[in-house]
Amino acid sequence: MQEDILKIGPKSFHSRFILGSGKYSMKLIEAAVRDGGAELITVAVRRANTKEKESILDYIPEGVTLLPNTSGARDAKEAVRIARLGRELGCGDFVKIEIMRDSKYLLPDNEETVKATKILADEGFVVMPYMYPDLNAARDLVGAGAAAVMPLASPIGSNKGLATKDFIQILVDEIDLPIIVDAGIGRPSQACEAMEMGVDAIMANTALATSGNVALMASAFKDGINAGRKAYLAGLGRVLNRGGDASDPLTGFLRD
């Protein structure tokens, strides 16, 4: 089988598991890299905005790409400022845009996200926008220069799985950029299911952070994602409806 590479902007990744930043801890980063095989790790710029001992940047293992996010931004202007600050702090050119005007559900604001994507992509950032899975907004993000599109599966931190499954499927079918499911994936089986649909990668955090054994769960996610990816590449077998196929073909009447 040909090597299966995930390309985002200028970089290639072998792993399709991305660690989110929701519940950050060193133990989690270590497990995600060692046991989950993560090569891309999210870091909240506002959280990295700290003096000395807590500085997350110091703990990121070599060979891992940092994905700073703009959490805390309430509009495009703030997201742009945070992204630039992340670059100044040494977080690199990748940026995950998160814009929330809601402190309760933390749902992304697609309109502002499109605006920020345009500005940052023009400035040379590799922009990965977190969004509510809406086809029109996703197309606007492509037009704005996004490097990937990151629809949510269900409310962030909820571990509720693919609540927006049908809408994510539409993005997979219509958008020619990597589709990375972000937020809400609570189990490896849900990650697997998303990958089977043709999603390109999974971002997760809470599911690992709140599990009884972080390292083991990281490894379970890796397996689930790989299984789903392989199934997608292999092409899923047919699913029989109503117990069987009609024995008389519907088109049997055609004579030539």
Binding site: S25, V45, R46, N49, E54, G72, I82, L85
Partner: peptide, 11 residues
């Protein structure tokens, strides 16, 4: 538990 000294940016 994890002590956090800052998780904020003035924008």
């Amino acid at each position: 538990l994890q002590p956090v000294l800052n998780d904020y940016l003035y924008v």
